[in-house]
């Protein structure tokens, strides 16, 4: 039995094309952040100066102050995106299983309806259901915003999960039952690990789409549900570049964290494990 050799962590890859792609990612993601960072700590920065003439931590003090709207908006965003993700998983699991594993009449139609929000702008649908939301009393509330966010996110969740379920062999569940696992334990020990990469991928898409949502939030939330994008827009519009820049950094951070945490599920061996398909 050969021992797994520990590899030295390396940044550069042997393949030059991969290095170029890596460079592209660094340039595309990190470079635009640099002016934001500079803006967020500048106090006075007028044309044609190359660097700010005066620095201050005013913007960060504002952003970090728990009594301002920023903290509130950050937690609103966090709650909305998290709840949307959880509901997405709960709906996506059975839907993905049905689409990935079963054949039924008019399946193409069901697929089309589920995928429609990813193709048709969800804005159109939201304007339509706004009336219903008002009648239900969920307009201008977090609940309403959460429901609205499900529209553009569910297609991604369902497609991610139906992908792993398509590779999934349900006989693994039978085998677990036979060996003495009840339905709940079978789901916990067998089904869940098998579809976990799909859940991670779908959740990542869902969370990020919901996190970056502006139009749906302002429409359904009616300006009363304040999330980070809404705050960001209003500061950008008001011309306070320092605070807008600081906010945009706060806004991007979760995305980068999520990307790093979940990236191992998006590529390489572990995504091939989805549904136990590679075994």
């Amino acid at each position: 039995m050969t021992k797994l050799q520990k590899r030295e962590p390396r940044i550069l890859h042997r393949n030059p094309i991969r290095n170029i792609i890596l460079l592209g990612i660094v340039v595309g993601v990190i470079l635009p952040m640099i002016p934001q960072l500079v803006w967020s700590i500048s106090h006075r920065w007028y044309f044609p100066e190359m660097v700010p003439t005066e620095f201050s931590m005013r913007a960060w003090e504002y952003v970090g102050n728990p009594s301002t709207k920023v903290t509130r908006a950050f937690f609103n965003s966090l709650i909305i995106s998290s709840v949307v993700t959880i509901i997405g998983v709960v709906i996506g699991l059975p839907a993905g299983k049905a689409l990935g594993m079963y054949k039924f009449k008019l399946k193409w139609l069901v697929e089309l309806i589920i995928l429609a929000p990813a193709i048709v702008p969800p804005l159109a649908a939201t304007i339509g259901i706004q009336v219903i939301f008002i009648r239900m009393g969920v307009a201008d509330t977090m609940t309403g915003v959460i429901i609205a966010h499900l529209i553009p996110t569910l297609p991604y969740m369902i497609v991610s999960l139906s992908g792993v379920f398509a590779n999934y062999d349900p006989e693994f569940e039978e085998q677990a039952r036979i060996l003495g696992a009840n339905k709940a334990k079978t789901f916990l020990f067998i089904t869940l690990p098998a579809v976990f990469p799909g859940i991670v991928t779908g959740s990542m898409f869902t969370f990020l789409i919901s996190w970056g949502q502006y139009i749906l939030t302002i429409l359904v939330g009616g300006g009363r549900v304040i999330t980070l994008p809404i705050l960001l827009f209003s500061f950008t519009g008001s011309g306070d570049n320092s605070i807008a820049s600081a906010l945009s950094i706060v806004f991007v951070l979760p995305a980068i964290i999520i990307l790093f945490v979940t990236s191992k599920f998006l590529s390489g061996k572990s995504s091939g494990m989805g549904g136990f398909g590679s075994i």
């Binding site: 006989e171 693994f172 039952r177 036979i178």
Partner: peptide
């Protein structure tokens, strides 16, 4: 239920 039958099964593809 299968988990209570004290029956075991070995599948063709081992699983």
């Amino acid at each position: 239920r299968p988990e209570k039958r004290e029956v075991v099964m070995v599948y063709q593809n081992y699983l």
